[in-house]
Amino acid sequence: MYDYPDGTAIALYAGLAIFWFIFAIAAYVLTSVFMMKIFEKAGVQGKWRAWVPIYNFMVFSKLGDLSPWLILIAIGASILLGWIPVLGSIIGIAAFVVTLLAAWRVGLKLQKEPVWLILYFFLSIVWLGILGFDKSRWNTAIPAAPWANNGFLSDRTVWAGIPSQAPAGGYPANPVTQPAPGAYPPPAGYEPPAGYT
């Protein structure tokens, strides 16, 4: 290790701290601006919602058909239990998975294919920017999420200024979890074994 004079090491640490502070502020401002544009597309009232640090991800998860309280629980648990080596990492990963699920649903509502999650996984700020500023329109009439009827993941929270994400008349049936009767006819010439009808 290099042996710096006392003032040089302090100046290096101060310069590095200032750089990371400016980088964090810039990332926060960009994320808030991009979320604000997505919230506008979704019909969320109040641009201020995108600028409140934890609340903006709660609104984002609500738009993604997830309970917004999952984000709050995940962040709180990571703050309280983050110091425990393995458990802290698992909770951090769980929080990211929740935002990934919300991003998948928000992307579907903005006409993006699920493959776009790869971009969110590696560069979420770029993903937010693209969805915020492209020409896509918000569409809630997509099939229900697999967890739509599950009490733990499903969103039943009602907040003033944030529109309900369930379309009028309810969600269309999800073809994966609720295929239509006769949707999968047997192949031509198929004879079921004796005893099966």
Rank of each mutant, 00 (worst) to 15 (best):
S164Y: 06
W20F: 15
A141D: 08
L81Q: 04
V115W: 07
G189L: 07
P187K: 08
G151L: 07
P143G: 01
I91Q: 09
K112P: 00
S61I: 00
G46Q: 12
Y2C: 00
E191C: 05
I75E: 12
P181H: 07
F60M: 12
Y171L: 04
V97Y: 11
Y196Q: 08
I10A: 14
D65E: 12
D6N: 09
G161C: 13
R49A: 13
A141V: 03
V106M: 04
L66F: 06
G170A: 04
V158W: 04
N139D: 11
P181Q: 14
K41G: 07
E191H: 14
A103R: 05
M58P: 01
G76Y: 08
S124D: 02
P143F: 01
L70M: 12
V98G: 06
P163D: 14
L128S: 02
M58S: 07
P193M: 06
D6A: 11
G15C: 14
A145Q: 12
I54M: 10
L119G: 04
W69S: 03
T140Y: 05
L66K: 07
F121K: 00
A50W: 13
P193G: 08
Y55I: 10
G43I: 05
R49S: 12
P185Q: 15
K62T: 11
Y28M: 05
F39D: 02
A27P: 00
N149L: 10
A173C: 00
S67C: 05
S136Y: 05
P179R: 11
L87A: 14
I71P: 04
I91F: 13
P186A: 15
D134S: 13
F39A: 00
L108Y: 00
G169F: 06
V44S: 02
F34H: 06
L81S: 07
A194N: 04
I90Y: 13
